[in-house]
Design a binder for these strands. Structure first.
Length: 589
RNA sequence: GCGUUCGUAGCUCAGCUGGAUAGAGCGACGGACUUCGAAUCCGUAGGUCGCAGGUUCGACUCCUGCCGGACGCACCA
């Protein structure tokens, strides 16, 4: 649709120029890029609209008068007549596209490209690394991670659909005081238990001890000196400490990986903080030697960023151990060496905006020219009706528990609708419906905004939800299957694009034709919500359409065949689009 | 205090680089299953787009100020 818009902008610019000539007006000709296109609020007004307000000064006449002149000029241009019809509507020049040719071209494009329909080459040749998830190994994933994972995976798929070479990376935060807390609790309260002996998923097992750290003397007192002490033993390489650390980390990581698998999330490469923090220390010390940083009286290393509106920040503690930002410095440098990227996107919550501004500034100061290619994709928190999720208050929405609940609900829904015997594997379908619901919910809102998760109202499968979109896909798949088995009239008819020119069909044709533009927009903005919203609109329009327009049982075979071709194209877009927002496409549900 | 960000219907969210009457879903109320799958569809009610200025032919959209919320400004991660 963007190409059609571009063509018409050029035509309107040409028409404006000829009108200026006709009136003997001097001045800069209007460039096609400057012409504003929009979609008229009502379909009957046209497919494209061009406001004429801005030309009133040049023409020294009213916008409606200009619109009439421009529409008349367009009417006399052979190039325009072939593409559609221009009319003046008040201060606007509106264009009615030639529906038949657009419909024919769109259906043909969808059919010819199939799973590739919608892809662009806007980012061709670009290497983009996307970092997301980044779990701590002291507890299982929660709802906030699910938003992060969905965003990271979806953005990666969208960037790839725009032609980029994408590398998805994870960073496991497997060292630090918080890890030591769960280790301490396990040492004192664990009695040698294992996830197997306790009958718990291994990451939940580790998280259980992290919570129980509060039962220890130091933990209950709000102190953490014993954990700091253990961290020092860890950094000095104490064998016993390392052994326990490795065992507990393996439990945590393998449990978290299980959650990734069940949600369809994957990575091309995984970095471990325990392996990169040392590199960060080295970089900081090298920067210190070069005079980029300074050491205070206590021995801590600082960077002064006040000249660019940031503060003075500590990069190394007085005892020489590294902190959060230290390892991020090392990790970034290592990543660029491993896989030189044109862009690195960090999918991290908005609460860390300041951290990333500092990180990028430090990396630039260290002389890394690619620091300008670092991008923080900031997203808002997932809040609960009672406020923020807090581990201590037990208000954290656990990822696995939420998934289990959604799956159970989907399973009940399938049973309630009496479809257990119709679909092949109800349990597998229930899982996919649950994922569709979860991912649509997490991705339909603009990333930057905080969002509210109200369990009672959010776990619905009706209305603007993932399952609504999946349902339309299943209905279309069902129709296609019936046609293939010989039901209906479509097989005896021929596809006639001329039959798609009516308003009802045109709504869908136009929407389908817009899909590549939507993919491009989502890629440019790194915003899956653009795709999610589009899919919901398309599904809704199709739903309205097929309620009022019989397809397999249409009056005549040609109409049936043509409508089925349209439905097939819609199904294709739903399938391609769902892939981009991590919503499983279902043939039946 | 400083910085970032958000404020659209009772609730959850859309609203394209400023443009024609601000749109959905949920909830409420009323309709539609002997007919391609009712996880659906159709209709009704519901908004001075936080407030006040400014820029503009035109502002939900841009600028300023104020009010309100969230987050950050740790030798925690």
């Amino acid at each position: 649709m963007n190409d059609i818009k571009a063509a018409w902008r050029a035509l309107v610019a040409e028409a404006l120029a000829s009108c200026m000539n006709a009136k003997g007006l001097a001045g800069e000709p209007v460039s096609a890029d400057a012409v504003i296109v929009e979609i008229p609020p009502k379909p009957e007004l046209g497919d494209l609209g061009f406001p004429m307000f801005q030309y009133a000064k040049i023409f020294r006449s009213s916008p409606p008068a200009i619109a009439k002149a421009v529409a008349a000029a367009l009417g006399g241009m052979a190039g325009a007549a072939a593409l559609g019809r221009a009319t003046a509507e008040g201060p606007y020049v509106n264009v009615l596209l030639d529906r038949v040719s657009v419909a024919a071209a769109t259906l043909e494009a969808v059919q010819a490209t199939g799973s590739a329909y919608g892809k662009t080459d806007n980012l061709a040749g670009r290497r983009i690394m996307v970092e997301f998830s980044c779990p701590n190994t002291n507890k299982p994933l929660h709802l906030g991670h699910l938003r992060n994972n969905a965003l990271g995976e979806s953005v990666s798929r969208i960037l790839k659909a725009n032609g980029a070479e994408v590398r998805k990376v994870n960073l496991i935060n497997d060292r630090g005081v918080h890890i030591c807390k769960s280790m301490l609790a396990y040492m004192k309260l664990g009695n040698g238990a294992t996830p197997e002996s306790a009958g718990m998923k291994s990451d939940h097992f580790v998280g259980h001890y992290y919570v129980r750290y509060g039962e220890l003397a130091d933990g209950a007192a709000g102190g953490e000196s014993d954990a700091q002490e253990l961290l020092r033993k860890w950094e000095s390489g104490d064998p016993e400490t390392l052994e326990l650390w490795k065992r507990m980390n393996d439990w945590a990581v393998s449990g978290i990986e299980t959650t990734y698998r069940r949600t369809g999330i994957s990575f091309d490469d995984v970095y471990y903080e325990s392996k990169t923090y040392q590199a960060g220390k080295d970089e900081v010390l090298a920067g210190l030697e070069r005079g980029l940083f300074y050491r205070d009286g206590d021995g801590a290393v600082w960077v002064d960023l006040e000249d660019i509106g940031l503060d003075k920040k500590v990069l190394l503690r007085k005892d020489g151990t590294s902190i959060y930002i230290t390892q991020d410095i090392g990790t970034a440098i290592k990543r660029h060496a491993d896989w030189p990227f044109d862009r690195l996107v960090y999918v991290v919550a908005s609460e860390q905006q300041y951290h990333f501004r500092v990180l990028f500034a430090v990396l630039e100061r260290l002389g890394n020219a690619w620091a300008k290619d670092l991008h923080h994709l900031s997203y808002g928190l997932v809040n609960l009706p009672e406020g923020r999720m807090k581990t201590r208050e037990g208000t954290v929405v656990d990822a696995d528990a939420l998934l289990d609940e959604l799956i159970a609900m989907a399973r009940d829904e399938i049973a309630a609708k009496g479809r257990e015997d119709i679909i092949e594997d109800p349990d597998a379908v229930a899982e996919k419906v649950a994922l569709g619901a979860l991912h649509f919910y997490l991705l339909h809102a603009t990333p930057a905004k905080d969002m509210l998760f109200n369990p009672k109202e959010s776990l619905s499968f009706n209305g603007a939800t993932g399952p609504y979109i999946q349902y339309m896909g299943a209905r279309i798949s069902s129709m296609i299957a019936k046609d293939a088995s010989g039901e209906g009239k479509a097989r005896s008819g021929a596809v006639k694009p001329g039959l798609l020119a009516a308003d009802a069909e045109w709504v869908l044709v136009r929407r389908v034709a817009t899909f590549p533009d939507i993919v491009a927009q989502a890629g440019a903005e790194c915003n899956p919500a653009v795709i999610a919203g589009f899919l919901y609109d398309l599904a809704g329009e199709f739903s309205t359409y097929y309620h009022g327009n019989p397809i397999l049982t249409a009056q005549d075979p040609d109409t049936s065949a043509t409508r089925l071709a349209l439905a097939t194209a819609v199904g294709r877009i739903l399938r391609n689009g769902c892939e981009l927002v991590c919503i499983p496409f279902l043939e039946a549900m």
